[in-house]
Protein backbone atom coordinates (compact mmCIF):
# COMPACT_ATOMS: atom_id res chain seq x y z
CA UNK A 1 0.00 0.00 0.00
CA UNK A 2 2.98 2.29 0.67
CA UNK A 3 3.92 2.54 -3.00
CA UNK A 4 0.30 3.10 -4.02
CA UNK A 5 -0.15 5.87 -1.48
CA UNK A 6 3.04 7.55 -2.55
CA UNK A 7 2.08 7.30 -6.21
CA UNK A 8 -1.39 8.79 -5.73
CA UNK A 9 0.00 11.44 -3.38
CA UNK A 10 2.64 12.46 -5.90
CA UNK A 11 0.04 12.60 -8.66
CA UNK A 12 -2.07 15.00 -6.60
CA UNK A 13 1.03 17.02 -5.79
CA UNK A 14 1.87 17.31 -9.48
CA UNK A 15 -1.69 18.40 -10.22
CA UNK A 16 -1.59 21.11 -7.57
CA UNK A 17 1.80 22.37 -8.75
CA UNK A 18 0.52 22.43 -12.32
CA UNK A 19 -2.54 24.39 -11.26
CA UNK A 20 -0.61 26.86 -9.15
CA UNK A 21 1.75 27.56 -12.04
CA UNK A 22 -1.16 27.77 -14.46
CA UNK A 23 -3.12 30.14 -12.26
CA UNK A 24 -0.22 32.55 -11.72
CA UNK A 25 -0.46 33.68 -15.33
CA UNK A 26 -4.17 34.42 -14.87
CA UNK A 27 -5.47 37.64 -13.43
CA UNK A 28 -5.57 37.26 -9.65
CA UNK A 29 -7.92 40.07 -8.73
CA UNK A 30 -10.23 42.41 -10.61
CA UNK A 31 -11.74 45.70 -9.46
CA UNK A 32 -14.93 43.80 -8.59
CA UNK A 33 -13.35 40.96 -6.65
CA UNK A 34 -11.53 37.70 -7.29
CA UNK A 35 -10.35 37.17 -10.86
CA UNK A 36 -9.91 33.96 -12.82
CA UNK A 37 -6.67 33.06 -11.07
CA UNK A 38 -7.90 33.50 -7.51
CA UNK A 39 -9.78 30.27 -6.90
CA UNK A 40 -7.49 27.89 -8.83
CA UNK A 41 -4.49 29.31 -7.00
CA UNK A 42 -5.85 28.86 -3.51
CA UNK A 43 -7.55 25.55 -4.19
CA UNK A 44 -4.37 24.13 -5.65
CA UNK A 45 -2.22 25.62 -2.91
CA UNK A 46 -4.36 24.08 -0.17
CA UNK A 47 -4.50 20.82 -2.04
CA UNK A 48 -0.72 20.88 -2.30
CA UNK A 49 -0.29 21.48 1.42
CA UNK A 50 -2.77 18.76 2.39
CA UNK A 51 -1.20 16.29 -0.02
CA UNK A 52 2.22 17.03 1.43
CA UNK A 53 0.83 16.40 4.91
CA UNK A 54 -0.64 13.16 3.65
CA UNK A 55 2.67 12.09 2.11
CA UNK A 56 4.48 12.87 5.35
CA UNK A 57 1.98 10.77 7.23
CA UNK A 58 2.45 7.90 4.82
CA UNK A 59 6.22 8.09 5.30
CA UNK A 60 6.07 8.34 9.06
CA UNK A 61 3.19 5.97 9.68
CA UNK A 62 3.27 2.20 9.77
CA UNK A 63 3.59 0.48 6.41
CA UNK A 64 0.41 -1.37 5.62
CA UNK A 65 0.53 -4.39 3.38
CA UNK A 66 -1.47 -4.46 0.16
CA UNK A 67 -4.99 -5.66 0.79
CA UNK A 68 -5.89 -9.08 -0.52
CA UNK A 69 -6.91 -9.08 -4.15
CA UNK A 70 -5.22 -5.78 -4.90
CA UNK A 71 -3.74 -7.21 -8.04
CA UNK A 72 -6.33 -8.96 -10.14
CA UNK A 73 -5.83 -12.50 -11.23
CA UNK A 74 -4.46 -12.99 -14.75
CA UNK A 75 -7.93 -13.76 -16.05
CA UNK A 76 -9.41 -10.81 -14.22
CA UNK A 77 -6.77 -8.46 -15.58
CA UNK A 78 -7.40 -9.74 -19.08
CA UNK A 79 -11.14 -9.18 -18.77
CA UNK A 80 -10.60 -5.70 -17.42
CA UNK A 81 -8.14 -4.85 -20.18
CA UNK A 82 -10.51 -6.30 -22.77
CA UNK A 83 -13.47 -4.19 -21.70
CA UNK A 84 -11.36 -1.06 -21.37
CA UNK A 85 -9.97 -1.64 -24.85
CA UNK A 86 -13.49 -2.15 -26.21
CA UNK A 87 -14.72 1.05 -24.57
CA UNK A 88 -11.89 3.12 -26.02
CA UNK A 89 -12.32 1.50 -29.41
CA UNK A 90 -16.05 2.27 -29.31
CA UNK A 91 -15.40 5.90 -28.44
CA UNK A 92 -13.00 6.19 -31.36
CA UNK A 93 -15.10 4.52 -34.03
CA UNK A 94 -18.65 5.44 -33.03
CA UNK A 95 -18.61 8.59 -35.14
CA UNK A 96 -17.14 6.73 -38.11
CA UNK A 97 -19.12 3.49 -38.15
CA UNK A 98 -22.26 4.90 -36.57
CA UNK A 99 -23.84 3.84 -33.30
CA UNK A 100 -25.46 0.63 -34.49
CA UNK A 101 -22.43 -1.04 -36.02
CA UNK A 102 -20.00 0.22 -33.38
CA UNK A 103 -22.28 -0.92 -30.56
CA UNK A 104 -22.91 -4.27 -32.26
CA UNK A 105 -19.18 -4.93 -32.46
CA UNK A 106 -18.64 -3.63 -28.93
CA UNK A 107 -21.29 -5.89 -27.44
CA UNK A 108 -20.22 -8.91 -29.48
CA UNK A 109 -16.71 -8.47 -28.18
CA UNK A 110 -17.65 -7.76 -24.57
CA UNK A 111 -20.21 -10.55 -24.33
CA UNK A 112 -18.30 -13.23 -26.16
CA UNK A 113 -14.85 -12.33 -24.85
CA UNK A 114 -14.82 -11.19 -21.23
CA UNK A 115 -18.47 -12.14 -20.76
CA UNK A 116 -17.96 -15.74 -21.91
CA UNK A 117 -21.41 -16.03 -23.41
CA UNK A 118 -22.24 -18.49 -26.16
CA UNK A 119 -22.14 -17.26 -29.75
CA UNK A 120 -25.93 -17.22 -30.31
CA UNK A 121 -26.50 -15.48 -26.98
CA UNK A 122 -23.84 -12.87 -27.73
CA UNK A 123 -25.32 -12.18 -31.14
CA UNK A 124 -28.86 -11.94 -29.78
CA UNK A 125 -27.96 -9.50 -27.01
CA UNK A 126 -25.66 -7.51 -29.27
CA UNK A 127 -28.38 -7.01 -31.88
CA UNK A 128 -30.83 -6.05 -29.15
CA UNK A 129 -28.39 -3.64 -27.56
CA UNK A 130 -27.43 -1.98 -30.83
CA UNK A 131 -30.26 -2.04 -33.36
CA UNK A 132 -32.93 -2.45 -30.67
CA UNK A 133 -31.57 0.36 -28.53
CA UNK A 134 -31.26 2.58 -31.59
CA UNK A 135 -34.88 2.01 -32.44
CA UNK A 136 -35.98 2.82 -28.89
CA UNK A 137 -33.81 5.88 -28.40
CA UNK A 138 -33.82 7.33 -31.87
CA UNK A 139 -37.06 6.33 -33.52
CA UNK A 140 -39.29 6.41 -30.45
CA UNK A 141 -37.67 8.98 -28.20
CA UNK A 142 -36.06 11.23 -30.77
CA UNK A 143 -32.59 11.07 -29.20
CA UNK A 144 -29.75 11.57 -31.62
CA UNK A 145 -27.10 8.84 -31.71
CA UNK A 146 -23.88 8.77 -33.74
CA UNK A 147 -24.31 7.98 -37.42
CA UNK A 148 -21.78 6.66 -39.86
CA UNK A 149 -19.89 9.01 -42.12
CA UNK A 150 -18.56 6.36 -44.46
CA UNK A 151 -20.27 6.73 -47.80
CA UNK A 152 -21.77 3.30 -48.36
CA UNK A 153 -22.85 2.83 -44.73
CA UNK A 154 -24.36 6.29 -44.80
CA UNK A 155 -26.36 5.37 -47.90
CA UNK A 156 -27.69 2.34 -46.04
CA UNK A 157 -28.98 4.77 -43.43
CA UNK A 158 -26.68 3.55 -40.64
Amino acid sequence: MFIVNIAVGLAFLCLSIYMVIGSISMKYYTDLGPGPGFFPFWLAAIMGVLTTLWLVRVFVGPRQPLPEGFFPSRIGALRLAGVLFALIAYALVADILGFRIAMLLFLLFVLYGPGRQSVPMSIAIAVLGSFGAYHLFHDVLGTHLPLSNIGFLENLGL
Binding site: A91, A94, D95, F106, V110, H144
Partner: peptide
Amino acid sequence: SILNGLILTFMLIGAYSLSNSAFDVG
Protein backbone atom coordinates in the same frame (compact mmCIF):
# COMPACT_ATOMS: atom_id res chain seq x y z
CA SER B 1 -22.00 -10.70 -17.76
CA ILE B 2 -25.02 -9.91 -19.92
CA LEU B 3 -26.30 -7.22 -17.61
CA ASN B 4 -22.81 -5.79 -17.64
CA GLY B 5 -22.88 -5.41 -21.41
CA LEU B 6 -26.25 -3.69 -21.30
CA ILE B 7 -25.18 -1.34 -18.51
CA LEU B 8 -22.17 -0.34 -20.60
CA THR B 9 -24.48 0.27 -23.57
CA PHE B 10 -26.73 2.51 -21.51
CA MET B 11 -23.76 4.39 -20.11
CA LEU B 12 -22.35 5.00 -23.57
CA ILE B 13 -25.72 6.20 -24.86
CA GLY B 14 -26.30 8.34 -21.79
CA ALA B 15 -22.91 10.01 -21.92
CA TYR B 16 -23.16 10.70 -25.64
CA SER B 17 -26.62 12.15 -25.69
CA LEU B 18 -25.95 14.73 -22.98
CA SER B 19 -24.59 17.10 -25.58
CA ASN B 20 -24.39 14.80 -28.59
CA SER B 21 -20.65 14.64 -28.44
CA ALA B 22 -18.10 11.88 -28.30
CA PHE B 23 -16.09 14.04 -25.92
CA ASP B 24 -18.41 13.16 -23.05
CA VAL B 25 -17.94 9.48 -23.83
CA GLY B 26 -14.22 10.06 -23.43
